[in-house]
């Protein structure tokens, strides 16, 4: 039987009795790009953090490549082949751009406990190839602390790719970037998904990005999935329009709507 890359069943989480995520279920296939959208406070981040093991769910199961990974640690999710980027970039600011990747590559190769040898000579070719991929090759030797925000986002993506993941979790990958950069980054991401057959789940506020690049879209509201399907279907969904987008909005207004965030 053809297994889904990621199968989430009835995932739930509440904080101090207040439910944040209620019974979310979905699947994600290899090579598929799935967007998770919803207004602020809908539970996207909680959902995301449960998938990569940062938060323990109260109920539900997460199957990754057919195996139960519910409440696995972020570390073991990484070892299983899940890469992730953060909404607020988390990089190693004291290192150069290339060293960030070398560190991740060393970790993937299980060599990070080696107490000798120069780490900045390790995996140079692989690191540079990844930097090429996200368009950061020219900045490889710059200190990560002095990068522009958009470049940090790209670095995040490159780092998330170092374990050749089969699943990529991207939490608002383009937030804070200029419109042109957003499109570039998402094109690169989509290419990766197709070439390497990687499943991608991402959250995003920019509706243009979502509807242009996602194969499917899920809409979360107050912790519940209220719609799921192809972009066009979701766009026409009455419940979505009513609850999330606001009644009466047409596509042209979506771009205006996201400006608020």
């Amino acid at each position: 039987m053809n297994q889904s890359l990621l199968r989430v069943e009835s995932l739930a989480k509440s904080y101090h009795g207040v439910p944040a995520v209620r019974g979310v279920s979905f699947t994600l296939e290899r090579g598929e790009i799935l967007a998770l959208i919803g207004p602020n406070g809908a539970g996207k981040s909680t959902c995301f953090n449960m998938l990569n093991g940062q938060i323990r769910p109260n109920a539900g199961t997460i199957l990754f490549e057919g195996q139960d990974v519910t409440a696995s640690s972020p570390r073991s999710m990484w070892r299983r082949g899940v890469g992730r980027t953060f909404q607020i970039t988390a990089t190693f600011t004291s290192m150069t751009v290339r060293e960030n990747l070398q560190t991740a590559l060393l970790s993937h190769a299980g060599q990070l406990s080696r107490p000798f040898g120069k780490a900045n000579r390790a995996f140079e070719v692989e690191a540079d190839a990844l930097l090429d991929r996200v368009g950061l090759r020219g900045q490889a030797d710059r200190s990560c602390g002095e990068l522009a925000y958009g470049d940090l986002k790209r670095l995040e993506l490159a780092v998330a790719l170092t374990n050749s993941p089969s699943l990529l979790l991207m939490d608002e990958p383009t937030a804070g970037m200029a419109p042109k950069e957003r499109a570039d980054l998402m094109r690169a991401t989509a290419a990766i998904a197709r070439e390497r057959n990687v499943g991608i789940l991402f959250t995003e506020h920019d509706m243009d990005i979502v509807f242009e690049h996602a194969d499917r879209v899920m809409v979360l509201n107050r912790g519940e999935l209220i719609a799921m399907g192809a972009p066009d279907v979701v766009r026409q969904d009455r419940q979505v329009r009513a609850i999330y987008l606001g009644e009466g909005l047409v596509h042209g207004d979506l771009a205006a709507a996201q400006v608020r965030h």
Binding site: S94, L106, S107, L112, S113, R114, P115, A119
Partner: peptide
């Protein structure tokens, strides 16, 4: 400057 040091940083 070894891989361990990078992991630490």
């Amino acid at each position: 400057f070894s891989p361990f040091g990078y992991g630490l940083r």
